[in-house]
Write a protein that binds this DNA or RNA. Structure first.
Length: 275
DNA sequence: ATAGCTGCCTGGCAGC
DNA sequence: TGCTGCCAGGCAGCTA
């Protein structure tokens, strides 16, 4: 489920439950989830650590521990749950963090795409996963100048650029489509072809759409009511994503679905002209 | 340096 | 009913 708004929602849920808890032991049931260090070292280093705080950067969850920062990316289907030790392990549980007070933080991931890393508390943002992330999609971090400079001379489709986490951190396939609809820009347009006024609308749309999605708790589609934080309502605001063949809310034209950058891409052919 | 493609995994669903 | 192929909210790593 995770683009930035969904991860933010997960973070807020975990913030209610975890700070102050001590990790007693960690069981890694699918080692490929652990990127670095090696799974056995990962488990050993986590034992005895207190969870002090939880943050987010782009789509990454950051668990601030006594001596380390645990960096977690949910990729397509990763989820965290906090459950008591007597609750049977659900299917697709791959990492179990045993906590004090007969509780466990459990990581589930049907497709096993998610990744976790452990890094230093000192400069966590220098970790390779985080170091080249672009700005957060907020008015105080993102501006036309940066976007314009990034898109200049780039031949790729503008949608591919929105999915590139070094331009802006946190946009995924749903919000890329929603942002481009809002900004009235065709997803296949080469980045360099955007005029200054297009870029200005685009930047504004990035900020407003992501902000609305965060405030809605993210988007919940084809999903699982029980997972923590997995109860967003932005799906009711989607204008193009998942609306193939439905009427455009602005002009009534049928929404089309094409492939851009190997991803399913929804747009209104009238509101978002190819130029 | 940039851009496109494949692999990583499993499950749901449409079409036959 | 069962099989096949395609699709899925993402990214790293490889190639040219």
């Amino acid at each position: 489920m995770p683009e930035l708004p969904e991860v933010e929602n997960v973070k807020n849920g975990l913030l209610d439950l975890l700070p102050g808890k001590v990790i007693k032991e960690v069981q890694v049931l699918w080692p490929n989830i652990i990127k670095d260090p090696a799974a056995n070292i990962f488990s050993r280093q986590l034992a005895g650590q207190t969870i002090e705080n939880i943050g987010r950067r782009g789509k990454f969850l950051l668990f601030y521990l006594s001596d380390y920062v645990l960096i977690s990316h949910l990729r397509m289907e990763g989820k965290f749950r906090v459950e008591t030790t007597d609750t049977p392990l659900a299917r697709h549980t791959h990492v179990v963090f045993k906590l004090n007070g007969e509780e466990e933080l459990r990581y589930l991931d049907v497709r096993k795409f998610g990744k976790m890393s452990l890094t230093s508390r000192v400069r966590p943002f220098e970790h390779p996963s985080l170091v080249s992330l672009g700005p957060e999609p907020t008015a105080d971090k993102l501006n036309d100048k940066w976007v314009s400079q990034f898109l200049q001379n780039r031949k790729r489709a503008i949608k591919a650029c929105l999915l590139d986490q070094t331009l802006v951190a946190g946009i995924g396939n749903i919000y890329a489509d929603e942002i481009l609809f809002d900004a009235r820009i065709h997803p296949s347009r080469p980045a360099y072809s955007l005029k200054q006024e297009d870029i200005s609308r685009l930047t504004k749309s990035i900020i407003t759409i992501m902000d609305k999605a965060v405030k809605s708790g993210g988007t919940t589609i084809r999903t699982y009511a029980n997972a923590y934080g997995d109860s967003g309502t932005y799906q009711h605001n989607l204008k193009v994503y998942g609306r193939d063949q439905a009427a455009c809310t602005r002009c009534g034209t049928r929404i089309e679905k094409i492939k851009v950058a190997q991803r399913g891409t929804h747009f209104c052919p009238l509101c978002q002209p190819a130029e």
